[in-house]
Design a binder for these strands. Structure first.
Length: 802
RNA sequence: GCAGGUAUGGCGGAAUUGGCAGACGCGCUAGAUUCAGGUUCUAGUAAUAGCAAUGUUGUGCAGGUUCGACCCCUGUUACCUGCACCA
């Protein structure tokens, strides 16, 4: 016997909707709780079973917090600009706006079938002109503050399709679509100066509550390092500046490496006998991404400059200069001093090209491997640094270099500025024009939103320009500054733009005068709890923190950080433990599960599947088990005894379970919360009956997980009001403690017996009871007890000898 | 390659954070209900030896610290995520 999930779930979803039960209140006097999940990209494939995992988790937290009296904001929206929609539109000759509308409608219906308590009155859509008006507005503020600028940057260029490709569209160095060779081509691009905020983005991690791995990964991505810039002179008389984190090893620098794109190569063109080889090498390097260049660590390639050498500034020795692609133009100065004895990559390179090594930090064996330890080594072969530790040597050499004017301390970041332009149609137009007289001019704010014009053909042009450049009527405009002829920017913004501030728009989604009202921002910020995938840790999370900090500096938002707390969920894999994908044929459609087993079952299963933070494989049998549990709840509730209090047998169990569920929800331990409720139901089953008071509590604590069924049973038994608006269950700490406890007794750390004692028994009493146990006696008879250990309420360990 | 993470029965996982390893669920075995299948209910279920009581072994691998280690330390292997134009 089971329950009819289809009737029950539809019924309650309608009642909740009609009564606006989950809409956040504008009563700013109540305590607030802002729960946020990452809004989805509405892809053509529809909802994936991975989506409901974080949504249900935060739904549970939100439902519980509402019952605890909070004014909860739990919104949902659509991150709808992006490449796949545009590619689909090109292929099928449908406008991306139509594709997006259809996808959103489908997604929304699917999400709504899950009974999530989203406040749909605040839905946002990044492709809505009323929304992207403010995305453009934020860009303009950044432009005015000099944080947006244009610069030549490399893009992936398909030599056959003649279009710019996204990294994802490049597979093994060739175009995904046509298989032709992909090269790196320079193009003038909009860049946002996120590096200007690098220090604060790293430092302010101290003021937020993010799970540790998110913090470390952000810190490492920003990659702040303190090193030195050192000027090397060359045989041409020119200067070559390097950045190094190990200035202490300067005496061990036996060669230099510059990146293939380094301007010095052009500068020394006349003096280089092998200039042609160097250019050929640069062409080869242009075919590789940065990732590939640094990846092929084992097989280093390079070309030695023939005709120019560098001079080590501390010992005057002439050393060769190489060009190699493992040095990137984008990090540091694009040139390094190579110390093969103390750097693994340099060591590999030096071995291959038979370059001499000089050991300057003693402590390892440089014949076998580079010695990179900075804790234990002592300086040698380094004149005035000899005998010092690495740490001391760093200080001294930097002082020396500064004094001589040939170097200085320098803080460097791995973080690079953000390339903010795409040569694509389906994105926010960048609201600037180019005037011959006035240069690059921002549109006046009154002209926002700058609407994305309609277009017939969304393909890129074969010069690599955005499809918008084909619209002469739109491109040619007048300069807002001088009224003369001007041309619009035709590149659009990347998808990251709209998702960098969406959580602000939820706060006041219909505001026409500002991205949100000051009053509402002040009440709702910061987001109290933001859950999202680990895959967004470095890009989205960092980008949105950067925008928020900028808006904070502008006085637009009242907090320096957008998110007070950040947690992360694991992926849901296919039954075969592999990532779900069409090609693997292991995709599970959430619609099928909702139809067959119900939304409550899907919700419960995804929360029970395992540790919320870890990946877990799907199991249809596991789904069935969760449905069984809900059926049992339904069946138990069909035969309820009267009673205003918990029965004596179950009282302690109820208080314990309420406590466990209450705490586990906040700790993201949904799986153990469910296990505790299952165990309690088993106890109820053993006892044979449940009373009204017990049922009321049981439905209350289960309701965030399985809201439809609980609401139905709540109504069926005539309990007051709607459960979704109800009050969370309370527990009495003193009633969660058992009167007698089991104490394991170990001999030499091995479990030999278990004794039962009263919960308030003293240590001496327990040790005596342990030694009096028959089994323990047989172990300790005739032996000497060396040590007696008692851990309060936990265990006894007797250490014996002989 | 760089950065972050993970590893526990046949499977998903639990373990009060250094104190009874395997809660809860799945699967499996046996029994009850049923004309039968399904459902439901009851009991059992880490491995190994034993009729049993019970013993021994056991948290990727190799060491170490400790009265006591899934948990801490050193080394090692495998896998997962991200790497800046997928979102």
């Amino acid at each position: 016997m089971g329950y009819e999930h289809k009737d029950i779930e539809k019924k309650w979803q309608k009642i909740w909707d009609d009564n606006h039960v989950f809409e956040a209140s504008n009563d700013f006097s109540k305590p607030k709780f802002y729960a946020l999940v990452e809004f989805p990209y509405p892809s053509g494939q529809g909802l994936h079973v991975g989506h409901p995992r974080p949504y249900t988790a935060m739904d549970i937290v939100s439902r519980k917090r509402r019952m605890q009296g909070y004014n909860v904001l739990f919104p949902m929206g659509w991150d709808a600009f992006g490449l796949p929609t545009e590619n689909y539109a090109i292929k099928n000759k449908i406008h991306p706006r139509i594709v997006t509308e259809n996808n959103i409608a489908h997604f929304k219906e699917q999400i709504k079938s899950l009974g999530l308590s989203f406040d749909w009155a605040r839905e946002v859509n990044t492709t809505d002109p009323d929304y992207y008006k403010w995305t453009q507005w934020i860009f303009l503020q950044m432009f005015k503050k000099g944080l947006a600028y244009k610069k030549e940057m490399a893009v992936n260029w398909c030599t056959s399709c003649k279009v710019v490709l996204a990294n994802e569209e490049v597979v093994n160095g060739v175009c995904e679509r046509c298989g032709a060779e992909v090269v790196r081509k320079n193009k003038s691009q909009w860049i946002l100066k996120i590096t200007e905020y690098a220090d604060r983005l790293a430092d302010d991690l101290d003021m937020v509550d993010y799970i540790p791995r998110v913090k470390t990964q952000q810190r490492n991505w920003i990659g702040r390092s303190t090193g030195a810039e050192v000027d090397f002179t060359t045989t041409t008389g020119d200067k070559l500046t390097v950045y190094t984190t190990r200035p202490d090893t300067l005496f061990g620098a036996t060669y230099m490496v510059i990146s293939p794109e380094h301007p010095a190569i052009e500068q020394w063109k006349e003096k280089l006998a092998n200039y042609e080889d160097l250019i050929a090498y640069r062409v080869e390097a242009s075919k590789k991404s940065d990732f590939e260049r640094t990846e092929l660590a084992k097989d280093k390639t390079g070309v030695c400059l023939d005709g120019v050498k560098a001079i080590n500034p501390v010992n005057g020795k002439e050393i060769p200069i190489f060009v190699s692609d493992y040095v990137l133009m984008g990090y540091g100065t694009g040139a390094i001093m190579a110390v093969p004895a103390h750097d693994t990559r340099d060591w590999d390179f030096a071995k291959k090209f038979s370059i001499p090594m000089v050991e300057v930090v003693a402590g390892g064996n440089i014949e076998e491997a580079a010695f990179t330890d900075i804790e234990t080594g002592t300086m040698v072969n380094s004149e005035f640094l000899n005998g010092l530790s690495v740490e001391e040597a760093k200080k001294k050499i930097v002082e020396f270099l500064t004094e001589k004017g040939i170097g200085k301390e320098k803080v460097n970041f791995k973080l690079r500025d953000w390339i903010f332009a795409r040569q694509r149609y389906w994105g926010e137009p960048i609201p600037v024009v180019f005037c011959e007289k006035c240069g690059c001019v921002p549109l006046p704010e009154s002209e926002l939103p700058l609407r994305l014009p309609d277009l017939e053909n969304f393909e890129q042009t074969d010069t690599g320009e955005s499809p918008l450049s084909k619209l002469d009527d739109w491109v040619n405009t007048t300069c807002p500054c001088c009224g003369g002829p001007a041309k619009r920017e035709t590149d659009t913004m990347p998808q990251w733009a709209g998702s960098s501030w969406y959580f602000l728009r939820y706060i006041d989604p219909d505001n026409n005068d500002a991205l949100a009202s000051e009053e509402a921002l002040k009440y709702w910020l910061p987001v109290d709890w933001y859950n999202g995938g680990m895959e967004h840790t470095t890009l989205h999370l960092l980008y949105s923190r950067f925008w928020h900090k900028f808006l904070y500096d502008e006085g637009v938002v009242p907090t320096a950080e957008p998110y007070a707390k950040r947690t992360s969920h694991g992926m849901i894999l296919g039954e075969n433990s592999e990532k779900m994908s069409k090609s693997r044929g292991n995709v599970v459609n959430p619609d099928d599960i909702v139809n067959t087993y119900g939304a409550d079952t899907l919700r419960l299963y995804e929360m029970f599947i395992g540790d919320f933070e870890k990946a877990a494989p799907w199991s249809e049998n596991g789904v069935k088990g969760c449905r069984r549990f809900l059926d049992r709840v339904y069946n138990v509730a069909q035969n309820v005894e009267d009673g205003d209090e918990y029965s004596a047998e179950l009282e302690a169990s109820f208080h314990k379970t309420i406590k466990k569920v209450t705490e586990d929800i906040e700790a993201l331990k949904f799986n153990t919360a469910i296990a505790a409720m299952m165990a309690l139901l088993n106890e109820i089953g053993d006892k044979g009956s449940i009373n009204k008071a017990e049922l009321k509590t049981f439905l209350t604590i289960l309701s965030p997980f399985a809201p439809h069924l609980c609401e139905e049973l709540w109504q069926q038994h005539g309990f007051e009001g709607m459960l979704a608006n109800g009050k969370w269950a309370e527990y009495d700490e003193s009633k969660t403690v058992d009167k007698s406890i089991q104490i394991p007794v170990q001999i030499n750390g091995k479990l030999r017996a278990t004794i039962t004692v009263s919960a308030d028994a003293e240590q001496a009493e327990i040790l005596a009871a342990a030694k009096a146990d028959e089994k323990i006696k047989s172990y300790i008879d005739g032996k000497q007890i060396v040590k007696e250990i008692y851990v309060k309420g936990r265990m006894v360990n007797l250490v014996i000898k002989g």
